[in-house]
C-alpha cells in the first residue's frame, strides 16, 4: 500500500523499497519531500488561481463560449432530450446543497441536531409553491422521469423561484418516500468534467392526502417539536 503514497513524484522503485523497510522497522516514516506538487503558473490571465472569471465557460453545453448569464441555465437533460420538451415537463432545477447540519451523510443519526433539523425539506420560493397549491409545511412530491421523493415544503424567500433545494446527506429512512438521489442523474457537466447533481430538472406537486407521515408526527418521545430550539 505504501507504494501508492507518492506515485508521481517518486517513481523510483528502490525509493519505495527503502521507505517500506523503514516503515516496517520504525512504525512511522517521515518523508522529506516537498509537498507542493504544482509550481508553475495557472492558465489564467494573472497566472494565479482566479476565484471568479467573467469569461469562464458557462454551463450551456455546446455553447461553451457563451457569455456569463444570471439566468438559470437549461438543465443538461433538456439539451440532450430528443423531443426537447423535458424542460416544459420538469421546469424546476433541483439542488442538493451541503448544509451546516452534516458532513455528507454523517451526523444524520445525531439526535440533538435532529431536534433542530428534524427532517428533509424542500426549500421552495413561496411564489413557486402557491402556483402549485402548496402551503408552507405541506408534504410535497418531487419527481421526474427517474424517480420521486416526498418531503415537507419549506417556504424560503432566499431561493430563486426557478430552483428548489433539499439539503444533501439525508438517508433513505428519513424520507416519507423516495430519496433525493432518485432524482439526480450521472451526466457529466462540460464546464467542469464532473457530475452535475445540481443540474437536475424536476416538478413539484402536493403529496397524496392519504400519506403516512407518522414518523414525524408521532415519533418524538417528548411530544415536543423543534420549536423548542428555535427551528421550525
Amino acid at each position: 500500500m505504501i507504494r501508492y503514497i507518492w506515485p508521481e513524484t517518486n517513481p523510483c522503485e528502490s525509493f519505495y523499497d527503502t521507505l517500506y523497510d523503514r516503515l516496517v522497522e520504525q512504525g512511522t516514516v517521515h518523508i522529506d519531500d516537498d509537498p507542493v506538487l504544482y509550481k508553475g503558473e495557472f492558465d489564467t490571465p494573472t497566472g494565479r488561481l482566479e476565484i471568479y472569471d467573467e469569461d469562464a465557460p458557462t454551463e450551456d453545453g455546446d455553447d461553451i463560449d457563451g457569455e456569463v448569464s444570471l439566468e438559470v441555465p437549461d438543465p443538461i437533460e433538456s439539451r440532450t432530450d430528443d423531443d426537447g420538451d423535458y424542460r416544459d415537463e420538469y421546469p424546476l432545477m433541483f439542488m442538493q446543497k451541503h448544509s451546516k447540519w452534516r458532513i455528507h451523510s454523517q451526523y444524520e443519526y445525531q439526535p440533538w441536531v435532529r431536534e433542530i433539523n428534524e427532517q428533509p425539506q424542500l426549500d421552495i420560493n413561496p411564489k413557486t409553491a402557491k402556483r402549485r397549491g402548496i402551503e408552507d409545511g405541506d408534504y410535497v412530491r418531487v419527481f421526474n422521469d427517474r424517480g420521486q421523493m416526498i418531503v415537507r415544503a419549506k417556504y424560503n424567500d432566499a431561493i430563486r423561484p426557478e430552483i428548489v433545494n433539499t439539503d444533501q446527506g439525508w438517508w433513505e429512512r428519513d424520507y416519507i418516500k423516495g430519496h433525493h438521489n432518485n432524482l439526480t442523474h450521472m451526466d457529466i457537466c462540460n464546464a467542469t468534467g464532473n457530475f452535475a447533481f445540481y443540474d437536475t430538472a424536476v416538478e413539484v406537486e402536493p403529496a397524496p392526502e392519504d400519506l403516512d407521515t407518522s414518523k414525524y408526527t408521532e415519533s418524538n418521545p417528548r411530544g415536543s417539536t423543534p420549536d423548542s430550539a428555535g427551528g421550525e
Binding site: 419549506k154 424567500d157 432566499a158 421550525e232
Partner: peptide
C-alpha cells in the same frame, strides 16, 4: 422569515 435560516422580504 418564518423558519430557521430563512429571510424576510422577497427574492
Amino acid at each position: 422569515g418564518e423558519h430557521v435560516d430563512t429571510p424576510s422580504g422577497t427574492y
